[in-house]
Design a binder for these strands. Sequence first.
DNA 1: CCAACTTATTAAACTTCTTTAATAAGTTTT
DNA 2: AAAACTTATTAAAGAAGTTTAATAAGTTGG
Lengths: 331, 331
Amino acid sequence: MGDLMTTPKSMKQAISTSIRSTLLELGSATKAELSEALDISFPTISKFLGQMGKEGEVLELGQDDSSGGRRAKRYAYNPEYSLGLAVFLEKSATHYALFNCAGKVKEQGTEASVLTGNSIELLEALITGCLEKHPKISSLSIGVPGAINNGRVIYIPDYGQLQDFDLKTHLEKRFSMPTAVENDMNAAVLGYHRHQGMSAEQSLVYIYLGQNGPGAGIMVNGDVVRGSTFFSGEISLIPQYDQANFWQALEQKNRNDALGRMVASISAILNPHQIIFSYEDISQSELKEITEASSQFIPSEHLPELISSDWKQDYLHGLKSLGLRLMLNPN
Amino acid sequence: MGDLMTTPKSMKQAISTSIRSTLLELGSATKAELSEALDISFPTISKFLGQMGKEGEVLELGQDDSSGGRRAKRYAYNPEYSLGLAVFLEKSATHYALFNCAGKVKEQGTEASVLTGNSIELLEALITGCLEKHPKISSLSIGVPGAINNGRVIYIPDYGQLQDFDLKTHLEKRFSMPTAVENDMNAAVLGYHRHQGMSAEQSLVYIYLGQNGPGAGIMVNGDVVRGSTFFSGEISLIPQYDQANFWQALEQKNRNDALGRMVASISAILNPHQIIFSYEDISQSELKEITEASSQFIPSEHLPELISSDWKQDYLHGLKSLGLRLMLNPN
DNA sequence: CCAACTTATTAAACTTCTTTAATAAGTTTT
DNA sequence: AAAACTTATTAAAGAAGTTTAATAAGTTGG
């Protein structure tokens, strides 16, 4: 039975973290508002906020207009208190983005591909460079186009040095900094989900139609679905016609019928709230045709909303969100 | 952000609940063992156990053999301290089972069908009868062959009185007792998962091949998958051949090939650890053939283990587990 | 069989959050 | 402009778990 109980020991951490995220979520707040929102007593909030103010983590914005009595002070999280570094490992290049606690990107750039260069040193050099320029960096999040198990690269074709390598632990030791390593599609669903402020109940499937075959990232009950062998979302292999799976059908048969069947399969099994495509892969008019095709198999009231979104953005949001969580929650 | 933090207010409940479940899980324990297992200080455990002993909730089993010093007292949860009632609403009849905290069934029986009788009064009469005979009953769990949203019957064909009825709230008010209402397939996966002591990471799909068409219960990351319109697991509608969905294929095409494609679809999307069939639906030799059929679509290392299990038992375990959780965790 | 040593349990001191009371700082009314 | 009233903040008292010290109950070796 997974123990998720806050013992008095871990209390301090839990309170700090929840104050941080609420402050960022609300933009700013008074002590009373925080106490109300978090169900933590006023004096406790006051004490923590005092400490965080002293360390520059929280800023005083001034006074609220009076609501009839003494005016309340308004506080905000200092978005520049710490920075996060997100690195996107891709075949052709390695991108990186530096963001603050408010999620604002402060700097981004592109370097030679760590993957084709096939050397972790390249990645380490990139990180070292950023760290020297920005000593406030306090979290790393790495996106990888391969199967990841708890920070370890399980399967990444063609890039030998990373194969079966525990990247998370390696980087955490190397830079003594909390690090997240996540698959690209999983980061994208996560990013879309969190950026849209969706609730845990809302399940999503994010579809990618690349030249290496289609793939999907899946979120159910607020968590990414990984599968027993980290093979979930390999939708290219769904059987669809007498003789063709989804990938084959995409190329050999009617594209929108194949896509419609894929949506139908996912709906029959998972019945997600939304299925998201990259706007680069699919146009709005195609979405309509796909919906129509899938409604030949599934009653339309049970079909998901088909959305087109910006994959790169969602991927970035995903890595930002992972990094942010590490920055706010020093475990 | 879903607040899952134990404030000092809810502390007492959280500690009691965790002591209860650990005691039941381990069978018996010393105070030191509980303190160790739960990461709660010895004095606190001691205090709570004292209180629970006074109320008859916990029994003293005697002394352990000495491990070199003073002998430790051994405690166990009193399995008869409270009982749970599980009710299985089925088309042809209504079954019920009475079980104690250790999960042991103390009594079971069958009554006229609440569904075809189409009257909630029948259900209430059954429960009232049990309650009079066994005043220690302290939880209700109801299994329903229909879509359930948070205790409300969302969709159940042919049984008008239950349609769109908040059964959970109704029964909780009527009998002032914590109540769980769950779909039959969902209860079965849950029961299998918990009874096998599986971890949250292990995902399952429980397949049922009834005369009303196949259906499935799905568990991912330790939670039941419900879908946006509570339509998840409606695998009968998976497109499989040029012109046939799964249900049609089951009847018109080669049965094991259809089943193999169904397994392949689920594996390509979810990649679960196991797919479970009712032993009444599928024989061991058929399982092999299905595996073979699905391996034409999916590399075998990514295929789930195909299991045959006792559906009725798993369903019972599911309702027991839901009831037990309510008995141990008075919210 | 008693001294030396282990281990379990109880008691006392400590920490930390909450609740309640007191004080400070505004606003409005007369 | 002072009295009456609101609301924010600070201070003191209370509650509940943890840590540390003290005591009780066994075991073992000379």
